[in-house]
């Protein structure tokens, strides 16, 4: 169980949060200008990268605020948490994520 740094509440246990998937997937400007395939991309398709991923979380059992985070999907480590009011990093990990990842892969 990780500690997740809610931009409003600080570090809290992972169980207080719900995951919201990929961030910055905007509702289409005009859904009716999209063909079915383009609409399906919005509805069903999300990025699924191996490595850093910008995603949404909500502090469901806390302040109920949504926020964005940059997280490494291999180490699961949060690299930055964004204050969604500015979408600037509110916290940034000092750790070298790639080094961690190497360590993990070597330990496998």
């Amino acid at each position: 169980m990780q500690l997740i740094a809610c931009p409003w509440c600080g570090k809290r246990e992972e169980t207080e949060f719900h995951y919201g998937g990929q961030a910055h997937v905007a509702y289409p400007e005009d859904p009716y200008a999209l063909d079915d395939e383009q609409w399906a991309q919005y509805v069903f398709f999300r990025d699924n990268p191996r490595g850093p991923f910008t995603e949404r979380w909500v502090h469901a059992a806390g302040c109920r605020r949504w926020f964005n985070a940059l997280r490494d999907t291999v180490t699961h480590e949060f690299l930055a948490v964004h204050d969604s009011r500015t979408d600037q990093p509110a916290t940034a990990s000092t750790a070298l994520a790639s080094q961690r990842r190497k360590g993990q892969e070597a330990g496998r």
Binding site: A26, A60, W66
Partner: peptide
């Protein structure tokens, strides 16, 4: 949560 999601993120 669904309503908050739309309200806050969209």
């Amino acid at each position: 949560e669904w309503m908050e999601e739309w309200l806050q993120t969209e």
